[in-house]
Design a protein around this nucleic acid. Sequence first.
DNA 1: GTCTATAGAAAGATAGAC
DNA 2: GTCTATCTTTCTATAGAC
Lengths: 192, 192
Amino acid sequence: MPYTKEHKTQSRERILASAITLFSRQGYDSVTLDMLMTHAGMTRGAFYNHFDSKQELYSEAMISAALTSPIAEETPEDIDSIEHLHNIVEAYLSQAHLQEPDNPCLMAFMVTDVANNEPEVRKTYTHIFKRMSHRMANLMESSNAREPQNALALAALMIGGVAVCRTFSDDKLADEVLSACRALAASVIDAE
Amino acid sequence: MPYTKEHKTQSRERILASAITLFSRQGYDSVTLDMLMTHAGMTRGAFYNHFDSKQELYSEAMISAALTSPIAEETPEDIDSIEHLHNIVEAYLSQAHLQEPDNPCLMAFMVTDVANNEPEVRKTYTHIFKRMSHRMANLMESSNAREPQNALALAALMIGGVAVCRTFSDDKLADEVLSACRALAASVIDAE
DNA sequence: GTCTATAGAAAGATAGAC
DNA sequence: GTCTATCTTTCTATAGAC
């Protein structure tokens, strides 16, 4: 047998990684299967051995990106959870995250895209949003009496800040908006 | 002459109105010129008598939507500017705005869409965002010492809240997020 | 100015060889 | 499992009649 099971798994991973990169760079519709598979080091025809349709890849790519997101990572032993959350927010609302990051947050890069797509994709987005805000609510727990509500607004602010700044043709404005969002986010985290 | 200048202007307005409705409903790429012109009561071929390309329509539609936005409206004589801003935010972050409104905010409904588009479209978006946040900063002036920065974060929060809730397949979650964003927005407006 | 008809260029998905 | 070749559909944009 020339192709092992492991080989197939690796191909699938490469497709998913390419999808995250290309979708975040130019959106779902603009990425063709040809582009995608070339980026992953294969040709168009091989795609359907891994996914039933382009739509299915959409959901899978969002899940894959969420699993490797810094927000999902464990809090290091040596810092407390509030400090950890501050660090997450600083990194999320940064210029580095806007410009071709390794781990782009598809929640922010593709909000509108998802809203216009099939129910299955929207369901996946909704699920990931819940996980993301629950995680942040947990990290807030020690300082914050109304953490569930604050975590929801914080998630919307983070996603909105990144999504909006990515559209700008004006880097200075992006810096100002990111900075304003970081300040507001910090005050939400530290609110009693 | 069977067609007056006024008739042409009216046709153009109908196309713009249809664009705002359809773009906000299903995104830029998914709206075909056929769909658009049928919705506007004409056929495909007539489109190019009004716009050079679909892309040009994109920018024009965003401008048109911004000009008729409630945020751009004058403050009524009988209420003060802070109260007016609260009203704007309440209406913006509402279920009614999410579901097929007359005046959908394309800034929120199309953020991601725009980010993946041509520089011209992004420039238009950037310009409108500045207008929107300046307007809100002015309305905040009387209560708020750091209004320029707060207005930027407020705009990002509003756009993020609406964009995110529109993707959800879960109405209850959308209600919770909208409510959390309204609460945070109100605290930003009233901050000293 | 608006119409119908069509050119011309993709794209998603499938078929069959290796 | 991956390849090349192709079917089929769809879309933007143009041409020319009225």
